[in-house]
């Protein structure tokens, strides 16, 4: 059983850190689009950078760079991974693994 990490919003994850998605609570169309792009509960997401004007964010999800606005990121709940976590694991943990 992994230690329970506090849940926070994706937009508060510092640049350069990684997190595991807990839930995607955007409006249905956006949530579906994000999930179909692989941003699912249990997926690892890296916060790569913030646009110079403070919005949107650049994320790395399943080997591709995705950009979403802060409003949407605020509705994605995540658990921050420890800083030492290796950059991009071989395969991002799936839903099943997260429940273990």
């Amino acid at each position: 059983m992994a230690p329970t990490l506090p849940v926070e919003q994706l937009d508060s994850v510092p640049v350069g850190r990684s997190a595991t998605v807990v839930s995607v609570a955007c409006d249905r169309a956006t949530a579906r689009r994000l999930m179909e792009l692989g941003l699912l509960p249990g997926t690892r997401v890296d916060v790569v950078r913030v646009a110079p004007m403070g919005c949107p964010l650049e994320l790395r999800v399943r080997d591709s760079a995705l950009s979403i606005r802060r409003v949407e990121a605020a509705r994605v709940a995540v658990q921050l991974l420890p800083e030492a976590a290796p950059v991009r694991p071989a395969v991002s943990p799936s839903v099943g693994h997260a429940a273990r």
Partner: peptide
């Protein structure tokens, strides 16, 4: 309409 979210791939 619902403000479509920006979901942008940076290829």
């Amino acid at each position: 309409g619902p403000r479509p979210a920006l979901v942008l791939e940076l290829p």
